[in-house]
Structures are given as C-alpha cells and as structure tokens.
C-alpha cells in the first residue's frame, strides 16, 4: 500500500470520526434549545426576546444533525471508493508486472496481457476521478455545516444580549448561550479538520 493510499484511507476514516463528534455536539445543542425554551417559558415577559431564539437554535441543531447524517452516508461511499481504488491500483500494478515478466521470459501469449493491463489502468483512473469528484461534493456539504456553525455563533451572541435582560433568569439563559457557542466552536473546529484532511485530494 502506497503512502498516498494510506493517507487517503486515514482521511476518509477521520471524517467519520470527526463527524460522530459533531453529531454528539449537535444533539447537545438540541437539548440546550429544549432547556432554553423551558427557562424562557418560566421567565415569561422577562425573556420574551429569547423565546424565538430557542426555536432557531432547535431548528439549527436539527438541520445540522440531518446534514451530518447525510455526510456520514457520503463518507461511507467515499470509503468504499477508496477500497475500490486500492484494489484497482493493486491489480494494475500486478498485471503490469505479469506482462513484463511474461515478455522478458518470451512467453508465447505475453501480448494477451495487454487487454487486462489497459482495462485495469482505465478502471483505476476512473476510480481516481470519481474520488476527486466525490471529495469536491463532500467539501461542499461540509461547508454547509460550517455555515450552520457560524449561524449558531451569531445566535449565541444574540442570546447573550437577550439573556442580559432576563433578570433572575440571566444566569440560566447565559449558560444556554455559552453552551450553544461552545458547541458551535466544536462543530466548526471538527468540520474544519475534515476539510483540511480532504482538501488535498480535491486537486491532487
């Protein structure tokens, strides 16, 4: 297995790992939204501005979970493609070696190996192209998650402002805002790592 193939396997596997952490955090945001909604309800008029924010937070968490679920399916496809590419590359290298050995030994039918060699090369190149295409699409989906993370941070900032006007509920609502902000940071960082791991394959 070449270093390039190893890195490719690691990159694809790391996406699944990073995204499972994102999924956990998104679920935490969803929980924070439910918690905030309950507090805002109890706070009544004092947290009037906070109430619609909780719906935003919840919606954002749901969308993030949905996106990550889709990306995970996509990452699995990418993993299978990596395995396929590895098999095709191995076959191509072995076929070429067999053809060379047969030719140098003067095998009567050495030239009949050319067909399988050509076919294996084309299959390998097809896989490589498909991998690059899929990586580009996956990067696009990851960008959408990043967008959600950025939106979550804006919401967290707004939440802090609204919380400051919530009287005795200030601390509880600030805690909600903090947890949303922290979660958004985590999502941003994890997804960013996925993007860095993959971006080298988009144009390689």
């Amino acid at each position: 297995m070449t270093n390039q193939t190893k890195s490719q396997f690691i990159a694809v596997a790391s996406i699944t790992s990073e995204l499972s952490a994102v999924m956990v955090v998104a679920k935490e945001i969803s929980l924070a939204a439910a918690n905030a909604k309950a507090i805002a309800f109890r706070a009544g008029d004092k947290a009037k501005g906070f109430q619609p924010i909780t719906d935003f937070i919840n919606e954002l968490a749901k969308e993030t979970i949905e996106l990550v679920t889709n990306i995970n399916i996509y990452a699995l496809v990418l993993y299978r493609l990596t395995v396929n590419e590895f098999q095709k590359t191995t076959a191509y290298n072995k076929f070429e070696l067999a053809a060379k050995m047969a030719e140098s030994d003067g095998a009567v039918y050495a030239n009949t190996m050319q067909g399988p060699v050509d076919h294996a090369r084309l299959s390998m190149q097809d896989c490589q192209r498909q991998f690059k295409r899929d990586v580009s699409q996956l990067l696009g989906q990851l960008e959408a998650v990043m967008h959600h993370a950025r939106a979550a941070r804006v919401i967290a900032a707004n939440s802090r402002i609204e919380a400051s006007q919530a009287g005795e509920y200030l601390q509880s609502l600030q805690a909600v805002a903090e947890s949303v902000d922290k979660a958004a940071h985590t999502i941003h960082d994890n997804v960013q790592r996925c993007r860095i791991a993959l971006s080298i394959y988009r144009n390689s």
Partner: peptide, 10 residues
C-alpha cells in the same frame, strides 16, 4: 500469470 502465458492466452 506470466508462467501460464507460456501455455495459454488470457
């Protein structure tokens, strides 16, 4: 494969 190619085409 190389050895078989002495006896038969692919």
């Amino acid at each position: 494969m190389a050895a078989v190619l002495h006896h038969a085409p692919v």
